[in-house]
Amino acid sequence: MEAILFMTFAAVAIGGAIGMVISRQAVTSAVNLIVVMFALAALFAMQDAHLIAALQVLVYAGAIMVLFLFVIMLLNVREKEGRATTRNSTWQIVAILGLTPVITPVMAFFSVADVAHAPEAPADFGTTAGVGKILYTSYLLPFEVASVLLLAALVGAVILTKTKLR
């Protein structure tokens, strides 16, 4: 059962990603990316990372991709300005799908993580309480640094778009 679900969501994610790359219109690319985000959220949920799954949908698919779509629609990116033909796409798909089963085992072989001897996940792994606890205790510094980074981006955006008052 789990394998079937995993295959389905993985297929959706890959299909969405390929669609995003080969589609001729910018809006279709963005919608395919949204599909990929949802598939990723489903995969996270299958790994018991419930909070991250919800946040993926809430933040990534719900806000960030909306802003992507905003920019595409406001700038009115037309078909001509993007990818023009699908003639080369078949080779691209073949290349991606053909090389993946070759590259992935190589990457897995050289990866650092020791999967067989991974530590046991705590009981509240992935729940809001569990993530909240470690986020505000063990990982407080990265959390604060990320907040400062976002603040810097925010302030930078405001300054870039601010018109000079007389």
Partner: peptide
Amino acid sequence: DLDMGLLFVFAIASVATYGVVIGAW
């Protein structure tokens, strides 16, 4: 019965934005 039911509701509400954006486009 999700243990983060409220977050689920907000996440789904944020997807409803797409109906508007894509509909307008």
